[in-house]
Write a protein that binds this DNA or RNA. Structure first.
Lengths: 259, 259
DNA sequence: TATAGTTGTCTAGATCAATAGACATTTTGG
DNA sequence: CCAAAATGTCTATTGATCTAGACAACTATA
């Protein structure tokens, strides 16, 4: 099984163009197809024409009925990604996923840069909660000590991109809520409380289907995927200052890891 | 909408315990529930007992019929994650996702460390292909110049974790296939061709539903999610030496980004 | 102005997903 | 030993998904 395939490979590669989807999976065919077309759009596969291939062509490629492809395209139209024009074809309206950089100095609003004109972060709510085991460990505080919890959702040009739950040690950052509300930025709220700089020390990523809560917060077409990042930021002495759990709308974002 | 919710928050948090799932989404309820239980298991939510809650309890929490929960548990049993024992309950067989570190010096086999006893990478095939636009740009070679393509699938303790397609400039690494087949490692194959060290310069991540190809390569229960990482490695002069596209089985892996 | 190619709409039937209820089987604990 | 609690199995019904085919409406082009 090692590397003596060579010539036979060419054939195998052509097969791969058949864009197969699987049945009886718990994920409807129209949704799998919508996912794949979305990916093709964002990969620029259709840039030559600016159009999605005709429904009959897609149906043949995916090996499904034309109506199934129509369901997929309807979902993408609902997202505003494509627009169908009777008699002409289906036009691509929007192409790129927003690329979000994760680095040692990750700051939410900065990285998005020129990709979106307007970034809005809305504070959904806050609370003062005792540290649970996992979070206490991540923040290096004793379990049960008080934390400030902030819940936010962020949008780019009106489209929700991510939603976060963040925790801060209440003793060190007692005015977190007020400062964040006033300044609209975690970085500035930290600065207002005497912390000038901080760095990302760890990020863990998983991907899964969105639950109903995330669907509504991120205005996702249901059944969508979220990428969940658990991250810890620390001050320059290595003392953790923030634990947060951010869920990104997977079909609107790609994460770029910078090293 | 800014931070004057406070007390009302506590109620909202309790509501969140209701583990809601959405209907008519193109993703079957049993699959959404399977995803959520899998996440709960890997988060350690059931560590106290080592058991998944009873079917009736889960059905109540998710607001669905017991049979729907049974479908979800059947899928998890199929994955080998849980085992049902009549009269007793449903036992957790395996807990953790494998954590895969992505850093400036990412090396596949090293990072997995003690998490898996045995790592096996199988060469699926190879080919010599002209560089397409995107890949040529990433590798900083002229479009159409020859690349060596390697396709592999990697498993930990017999469970497929990821599948990769990688490209190397054919002029610089003409013996890539032979050396890789002989040594079983990209790092060693590079060394055998005079490249002693290399670093990760970029990684881009997206998440989506797996296609049939990935389902069969990764032996995924259909409808599963993959995380796709496009990465570029370069030598210490910054000259790109490898472009690769790795798809991770999202329900078996978490990615840890180290900065 | 035909004609081919495209999306839009409708109907009918087959299969999958989910609910509902009843009862069997097995284990645990009083 | 008995009762409670858990999983296993079966039947029946409803709604969502997918297929199949036919035709209408619209667009571009020869």
């Amino acid at each position: 099984m090692a590397g003596k395939i060579g010539a036979a490979e060419i054939g195998a590669k052509k097969m791969a163009l058949k864009k197969i989807v699987e049945r009886q999976t718990g994920v409807a065919l129209w949704r799998q197809i919508a996912d794949r077309i979305r990916l093709s759009i964002s990969n620029g596969d259709y840039d030559a024409t600016g159009m999605v291939p005709p429904e009959m062509t897609l149906a043949r490629e995916f090996g499904v009925n034309r109506h199934t492809v129509r369901s997929a395209l309807a979902a993408l139209a609902e997202e505003g990604l494509v627009r169908a024009l009777q008699g002409r074809g289906t036009m691509i309206e929007r192409k790129d996923r927003v690329s979000y950089p994760i680095s040692r100095r990750t700051r939410f609003s900065q990285g998005l840069g020129r990709q979106v004109k307007e970034i809005a972060t809305r504070l959904l709510g806050h609370a003062e909660v005792p540290a649970s085991g996992e979070i206490a460990a991540a923040l290096a505080v004793s379990p049960g000590s008080l934390l400030i919890e902030l819940r936010t959702v962020s949008s780019g040009d009106g489209r929700p991109l991510s939603t976060s739950v963040s925790y801060y040690p209440a003793d060190r950052f007692p005015r977190m809520v007020e400062e964040y509300s006033r300044l609209g930025s975690v970085t500035k709220a930290f600065a207002a409380q005497g912390l000038d700089d901080y760095v990302r020390v760890s990020t863990e990523l998983v991907a899964r289907h969105a639950d109903a809560d995330e669907l509504s917060l991120l205005k996702l077409s249901p059944g969508a995927i979220v990428m969940e990042a658990q991250s810890v930021n620390a001050d320059l002495d290595g003392k953790p200052v923030e634990f947060s759990r951010t869920r990104f709308a997977a079909d609107r974002m790609k994460l770029r890891i910078e090293t």
